[in-house]
């Protein structure tokens, strides 16, 4: 059977990398006794797919993964077994049975974050209006590091929603950013773009992912800025399970 689940990562486990999370889940599945299907071939791999890697330091309540099991389980029993085998700091929040075979990694289009920052330099007094200023820009160019080197990209079209405020030398935003395999904007990248636009250095204090979204095409739903009149839906939405 195929199951998709949402899980959270809390403070105590935020300092481990993506590959460590993969290994941790593989071992948790082994401990839980839930029989994960393995790929065929010389080096059988457990069939677990994560929606989006978590950068070091990120906490989250909106992570998703798909798993294939060799036997049928009720989702409640599945969650109970796996939660009993996860260390403190990781926990499943919901799980659903899945029929459609979409690749979870490739359907993710956006992520909602809460990002806290420190204002290192306060050169621009207009900084308090940073939400307005960022929204008013057409182009925010930043240098993105990729496997092949560095390239300049415009992240403004990938900032779909932005709200937030500044309190003295610190600030917090809630922001919907492009995510997934092609349009990913990491919180640091977003902050460096904003720093550039408002002419003040913002330093990341914390980042918390609230949700990952799938762009559901051809459906009239909630109309969000930047989403090409399509709707952002949860990876656990019945329409795509």
């Amino acid at each position: 059977m195929h199951i998709r689940f949402r899980f959270k990562r809390e403070e105590e486990l935020k300092f481990i990398g993506h590959l460590d999370i993969l290994r941790l889940f593989e071992r948790a599945f082994k401990r839980s006794g839930l029989p994960v299907s393995h790929s065929q071939g010389f080096n059988p791999r457990p069939q677990i797919v994560f929606a989006q890697p978590m950068p070091l330091g990120l906490t989250s309540i909106g992570e998703f993964a798909d798993v294939e099991l060799e036997k049928e389980y009720y989702t409640d029993e599945f969650m109970q077994k796996l939660n009993g085998s996860l260390p403190p700091g990781l926990q499943l929040l919901e799980a659903k049975k899945r029929i459609k075979k979409s690749n979870l990694m490739s359907i993710i289009g956006a992520a909602r974050y809460k990002i806290g920052f420190n204002i290192e330099t306060r050169e621009n007094p207009a900084i308090d209006r940073f939400v307005e200023i960022v929204s008013g820009e057409d182009t925010i160019n930043v240098i993105k590091k990729t496997k092949s080197g560095e390239k300049e990209i415009n992240i403004r079209p990938l900032i779909y929603e932005l709200s937030g405020n500044i309190n003295g030398n610190t600030g917090e935003v809630e922001v919907l950013l492009g995510a997934g395999q092609t349009n990913n904007v990491r919180p640091e990248l977003f902050l460096s773009g904003v720093s550039h636009v408002i002419g003040s250095e913002l330093k990341l204090e914390y980042m918390h992912r609230l949700m990952l979204y799938v762009e559901f095409r051809g459906q009239k739903g909630v109309n969000l800025p930047g989403a090409n009149k399509n709707a952002w839906i949860s990876p656990l939405d019945e329409k795509i399970l």
Binding site: E12, L13, F15, I16, D20, R27, A28, R31, L56, G57, P87, P88, G89, E205, Y206
Partner: peptide
């Protein structure tokens, strides 16, 4: 602090909380 942990190699060396 997070600031310290972010600045060192492999911070999970110092955070404990492992299974078992």
């Amino acid at each position: 602090s997070d600031e310290i942990l972010f600045s060192v190699e492999k911070p999970a060396r110092y955070t404990g909380g492992e299974w078992n």
